[in-house]
Design a protein around this nucleic acid. Structure first.
Lengths: 114, 114
DNA sequence: TTAATATATAATGATTTGCTTATATATGCA
DNA sequence: TGCATATATAAGCAAATCATTATATATTAA
């Protein structure tokens, strides 16, 4: 019973996090590719702090993880998160966002060094 | 391309709506049963305006519909909504909330007249 | 070591959200 | 008709959210 309440609370919390266009698109992109912060800045044409704060929220609940690679910090989906399958199921229903990465590659701003 | 953007925007909007414990639980309850406003008031131990306002948000985007039955207004999931399958997929992953309705029945406050 | 690049964090402010209180509307019943 | 019940809406307020600006930290390269 406590569990049931808790689960609903947690699910609502995750959905609220995903209920932002920027974060939702980030997650969809991360579904297939690790990305670094500056790529997101470029993709969303947003300020670096804004992107950084969105990523922090996703990281704080553990649905993404970060890994430094030299100068860059790459984000990826945390497959060990207790929310992983829940999140994944939501993402499956979204249109893919490959185009956004293609645009980066076209501009030559995709970070592929590592 | 416009479509892709639009879809993400819409998906985020729906997820934000579902990203509230009260609304999310409402939707899960409605998955299997129509409910009237006073039942929700009882279940959530919330004020009537608060419940009414949550329902309005769900109705405004069309994922629930209302039907007056005498004195009461019953809400149900709108299966014709363009978001129906999206919402349904999310709900499937949540623990069922039958217990909440059982409690109402035990208290004799479940509206079953119609 | 210094400068440049990538990222995070803190502080601030505008907007949004969700509740409360008060009031309006609609239905059923005496 | 008048009253009780069910619901919706409006107004006001506190808390949460999201962007911005400013600053701090970490890495790389000169």
């Amino acid at each position: 019973m406590l569990k049931r309440e808790l689960e609903m609370e947690k699910a609502a919390m995750i959905l609220k996090l995903l209920g932002d266009k920027t974060r939702l698109t980030m997650m969809k992109l991360l579904e297939n590719h690790d990305c670094c912060v500056c790529e997101f800045v470029e993709i969303f044409q947003a300020s670096q702090p804004s992107i950084s704060q969105h990523l922090r929220k996703l990281r704080d609940v553990g649905i993404v993880k970060e890994e430094r690679k030299g100068q860059w910090i790459f984000y990826s989906i945390n497959k060990n998160s207790e929310y992983f399958s829940f999140v994944q199921q939501v993402l499956t229903q979204l249109p893919d966002q490959e185009e956004k990465l293609k645009e980066l590659e076209a501009k030559g701003t995709r970070i592929t060094c590592c």
